[in-house]
Design a binder for these strands. Structure first.
Lengths: 153, 153
DNA sequence: AATGAAAGCGGACCGTT
DNA sequence: AACGGTCCGCTTTCATT
């Protein structure tokens, strides 16, 4: 389990993954070789899974974002799963318990494109689409503390 | 709108946001000062919105992930929105059209914690919870091409 | 597992095209 | 808007604790 120093490093990288080892060293109170060593181990252990960027989809003309719940018809589950994976406008998808097998995020340029994509699923699944209006919570980390110091308020 | 070189840079950073300017220069066929200049402009224009890391929640004991749809009772929408924001285990939340006002992602350590958190909403909203079993599509970028060279297969 | 020293490489700032 | 050159600073390696 990551210790407190690891958590400081992770939080610092979450804010800005391009921070230099030296900057991370200052933040954590370690030397830069130690930081490098810790990052290496965190990657190795699968704690840090990716260094990545966030892009504004609107900059690329993706004016609409939708959450689509998908309920495949009997026997069509694998086909639907492959279809979702093959359509790049689905930028995220979870397989979940309950009636809706999949919950996916869809980025499209227009209502017409939304319709066209949902249409591809329509012969093998029922879909339920909600257009994203705003995002009250942007992707963030859950609390990283080991011990539940906060009694789960 | 970002040109093709910008797209190459963005895709390269999406894969690994810690790539050096020199590495990005080689990938894109530019010099490193030019790469630095382009990144600066992409940030300025709000195309690149963050450099960040992805963490495995399980490494921190978050054994369960759920998608929660939340339908506030009349007049309780703002209160619910603030509540979601205040509970750090909600790591993502969109406000959407339709009956369910919010769709949120919840990370918890146990079923008990799941219950405890949903309980906090229960007097002001109806919730519908789906446990995430697998993630067929991990967060990715939609196609970045300007022109729809792919006729939306 | 972390440190300091040293060497090698990358980034930032020039002036130029 | 991109380039090459230069200088400075960071990263990486290694020996040490």
């Amino acid at each position: 389990m990551p210790d407190e120093t690891d958590q400081i490093l992770i939080a610092a990288l979450m804010e800005d993954s391009r921070r230099s080892l030296k900057a991370l060293a200052q933040i954590s109170g370690l030397s830069s070789p130690s930081v490098a060593e810790r990052l290496r181990r965190l990657e190795e252990r699968g704690v840090l899974t990716a260094y990545t960027v966030t892009v504004d989809p609107k900059s690329f003309g993706y004016q609409l974002q939708a959450i689509v719940r998908i309920r495949p018809m009997p026997g069509r589950m694998h086909a639907i799963e492959r279809l979702i994976q093959a359509i790049p406008e689905f930028t995220e998808c979870d397989k979940v318990t309950g009636e809706d097998c999949f919950v996916a995020r869809l980025n499209v340029r227009s209502m017409e494109q939304l319709d066209a994509i949902l249409d591809k699923l329509s012969d093998q699944a029922e879909t339920n689409t909600s257009i994203v209006k705003t995002t009250p919570v942007k992707r963030r980390l859950p609390p990283l503390k080991h011990y539940a110091t906060t009694p789960e308020k």
